[in-house]
């Protein structure tokens, strides 16, 4: 029984190293860059971060994407952007750039445009897809000081720089569905310390499979 299980797992692992499976939704979302004409979507929930991503692969490894990130459902970061697979062999390395908005309510209001650059890297190891994300995000807001009567005393721009990061592994469940678990390691509101977060996610995809 145990031998049968091991052989089955080994066969499955070999199968998921197949070139066709490199375009798996879990790898596309976590390592970046969808296969040409693939649609991929990922969603993760955790503390504090919850994320939804949709992306589509184009020729040459380009991948437009749209995403919404939320921290404790109190800080929202919608964005659109594009990714480009730089390396796609045993290891995959993808660069992504996004522009969007940061929306945070009281007691620390922050509303303004944002941009983020990040790299996603990792490799396929059987059914697993260990990954590392590193990035930098910059947001701008206007601090407004008002009198009780509503007159604006002064307005001044404030920039917030956030170092973003995540570390985890995906796991391919079927040809079109995978899951992941990871640590979220952003440094928001520098120089204040940030507490690492955790998430679990699911990824899926559809479209031409190549």
């Amino acid at each position: 029984m145990a031998t049968w299980l091991l052989l089955t797992l080994a066969a499955a692992a070999a199968d998921f190293q197949d070139q066709d499976k490199q375009g798996h939704p879990t790898r596309a979302v976590l390592l970046g860059g969808s296969g040409e004409a693939h649609w991929n979507a990922g969603a993760s929930v955790g503390s504090p971060w919850t994320t939804v991503t949709v992306q589509r692969g184009l020729r040459g490894g380009w991948t437009p994407l749209a995403e919404v990130q939320a921290a404790s459902f109190a800080r929202w970061q919608p964005a659109v952007g594009v990714g480009k697979r730089w390396i796609d062999r045993r290891w995959r390395l993808t660069g992504e750039g996004t522009v969007g908005w940061t929306l945070q309510g009281d007691p620390i209001p922050f509303r303004g445009p944002a941009a983020e650059l990040r790299v996603k890297g990792g490799r396929a190891v059987g059914r697993f897809a260990p990954y590392l994300h590193l990035g930098m995000r910059s947001s701008r807001t206007e601090d407004r000081v008002e009198t009780v009567s509503g007159d604006i005393l002064r307005e001044e721009a404030r920039w917030e720089t956030t170092l973003t990061g995540a570390l985890g592994t995906g796991f391919l469940l079927t040809d079109r569905v995978g899951i992941d678990i990871g640590l979220d390691l952003p440094w928001v509101h520098m120089p204040n310390p940030s507490i690492p977060g955790m998430h679990i996610g699911v990824q899926t995809g559809w479209g031409r499979n190549q």
């Binding site: 504090p48 404790s72 620390i108 204040n192 310390p193 940030s194 507490i195 977060g197």
Partner: peptide, 8 residues
């Protein structure tokens, strides 16, 4: 507060 405690 350390992030994310300041959000809530």
């Amino acid at each position: 507060f350390p992030f994310p405690f300041g959000l809530r």
